[in-house]
Nucleic acid binder design. Structure first.
Lengths: 111, 111, 111, 111
DNA sequence: GTGGTCTAGACCACC
DNA sequence: GTGGTCTAGACCACA
């Protein structure tokens, strides 16, 4: 995990958790590490991890049991999948295609 | 010119100039607008435009003639092209491929 | 800190930091003052200090930890040394030699 | 003559004329080109050349015969020599020595 | 006219 | 608290 990129740390943490959900590493009702544990593990301020968990909670990916910890919501994988697909197809892919055209690259050459 | 709020204005100005170079609108030795002109035209502070020009100068896309203005470097188009291709192929495309895999999308479906 | 009026302040700040790195005062991973602290200390606008830090970052002398501050890069001393030696040997020294010739001075007389 | 350096053009012109005086190319009472001729030759605005001539006149290196042109002063070479030697010995050389020390270079290695 | 630099002050995201 | 960005306005050297 690289934190010197131009993306904010808390968003990178969100991404990494979403990726693990998508990959099936984290399943419904799995508990994720506490903000303190996770922060210590990756060398990040617990406040920052907390902010990530807050965002994921807002997005309905994880939920909090008070005093116990954070857990993956039921159907989280499907939700992440749907959300990211929509984002990808409607926003990212068109931009990528436009850029590849400008650069004179075709998708065929790349795969 | 419309500004996307999640990217800094000065970088968007750089991008727009690079795009115009790529598209062939700006050719070697063409003069670009003064920081004041351009700033007034797009409703941005001249200092912000100056910051863009400074970056483009560092990148070897434009150069300054003292007291006269900024001009497109010889070979700017090739350089922008090479730079952006490298960036795309080495950084962006791998990330895109990874993401598409995670999302269960294949390039074939998209074109 | 005293500023020489025929060189811009932000470059003099860069120089002073490089000098401190060369002298071993600032070592790898040392944190340098925040732009506000340093600005207040030397009586300069924080923006000006920020500009210096930005340049040093581009030069790979320091790096930024988001929300924390600026730190000396590993190997910064060696890099500054190599860079300045190269500049001196390839650009400055030949000019000095030429000038001494024109002035009829020889290095032997001077040391 | 390269004008993209960080030194102002009019000062570079002064330097080049002083160098030619030092080298003996320009002798007492030689006429130098008109601002227009010289400007056209080196691709510089005549105003800029005029500014150089003005400075050299102030410095007593050249003088103006109204309607005729600019000429090298008697004893110009000696004067330039004395002036530059003083500047070099008192200001530049000490700075150079200091820098070489910092960079771990000795004059002996360089000649 | 051109750009280069600096200041002051503001707002923001982030840690 | 940190830096990042932007604005407004100023002064300067230079062409």
């Amino acid at each position: 995990m690289e934190f010197n990129s131009n993306k904010s740390i808390y968003l990178q943490i969100c991404d990494s958790i979403c990726d693990r959900v998508l990959a099936g590493e984290l399943k419904d009702q799995d508990r994720i590490q506490s903000v303190r544990e996770f922060g210590a593990e990756i060398g990040v301020n617990p406040n920052t991890v907390a902010r990530s968990y807050e965002k994921l909670t807002d997005d309905g990916i994880i939920y909090n049991k008070r005093g116990i910890g954070y857990f993956i919501c039921d159907g989280a994988r499907e939700q992440v999948l749907a959300e990211q697909r929509k984002e990808f197809l409607e926003v990212e892919w068109p931009a990528i295609k436009r850029k590849m055209e400008l650069l004179g690259l075709s998708p065929d050459q790349l795969d």
